[in-house]
């Protein structure tokens, strides 16, 4: 469903991704791990379509379409979702209004009828329960004044509502306590049950205690230098990233 080949991208004048390859199939969960500055977040944002990240080479195909030719909203319509590492605060934009606008934009792009207020509310309540999210968050402006944990849960809530075909979680686990981590894991595992695909971008192995990945990739210096099963994550936990750098150099 997602095929990345030889992807190179620059942020400003600096090349961050230097020929990255990645294949993600339907229903698969891929963990991308790597040290800080290796390009993990850049990859997530390039896939979601951030305009200030410039792709200089390579191809990305998603659901048979040239992903790089699409606007961020078109990518969302196709079923791509990015859970932000730092969810953006939108003062004055009501969370419920925002969620409804997003869901209906995606539905109408797919030729489905828009949900009316009642149907939307019903769906929202149903998804809320799964995440133990406080109703009051829905009445507040999007992410505005939310705690770190609330912001992350709000991301997962959006994911649960929009049911993407491919969800990219950009360090969603960083800075979370165990309870929130479980909620994030529940959200991802629910998607997995629907045969949806997930890319988990993470620095730590901890999240993988709750979500068992099908594949683990190590990203360093803008390229995937090693791929394997879930046991690779354990190895990384034990040895750190240092040995990989040495291996790559060798």
């Amino acid at each position: 469903m997602l095929s990345v080949k030889g992807l190179r991208a620059k942020v400003g004048e600096k090349e961050i991704l230097k020929g990255l390859d990645l294949e993600v199939g339907r229903g698969e969960v891929h963990a991308i791990m790597g040290p800080n500055g290796s390009g993990k977040s850049t990859l997530a944002h390039v896939l979601a379509g951030r305009e200030d990240y410039r792709v200089t080479a390579g191809t990305v195909t998603f659901e048979g379409r040239d992903l790089l030719a699409l606007t961020p909203e078109e990518r969302a319509h196709l079923g791509l979702f990015l859970a932000f590492q730092y969810p953006v605060e939108l003062p004055g934009v009501n969370n419920t209004y925002f969620l409804k606008a997003a869901l209906n934009a995606i539905r109408s792009a797919r030729g489905q009828p828009e949900l009316d207020a009642v149907a939307f509310l019903r769906l929202m309540r149903e998804r809320l329960k799964v995440l133990y999210l406080d109703d009051s968050l829905l009445k507040r402006p999007v992410n505005f004044g939310f705690s770190g944990g609330e912001k992350k849960r709000n991301e997962i809530f959006q994911m649960a509502l929009l049911e993407p075909k491919l969800a990219i979680l950009d360090e969603t686990d960083s800075g979370l306590d165990i309870d929130v981590l479980r909620i994030v894991a529940d959200g991802v595992n629910a998607l997995r049950g629907l045969e949806r695909s997930v890319i988990l971008v993470t620095h730590y192995q901890r999240l993988l205690d709750y979500i068992e990945p099908d594949f683990v990739h190590v990203l360093a210096h803008g390229r995937i230098i090693r791929s394997g099963g879930k046991e690779l994550a354990l190895e990384l936990e034990e040895k750190g990233y240092g040995w990989l750098g040495a291996e790559e150099a060798a």
């Binding site: 379509g49 305009e51 606007t71 961020p72 909203e73 969302a76 979702f81 953006v88 925002f98 934009a105």
Partner: peptide, 11 residues
């Protein structure tokens, strides 16, 4: 902020 909204499918 604009990118955040667009990434959710909003034009």
């Amino acid at each position: 902020q604009l990118f955040y909204l667009r990434s959710r499918g909003i034009s």
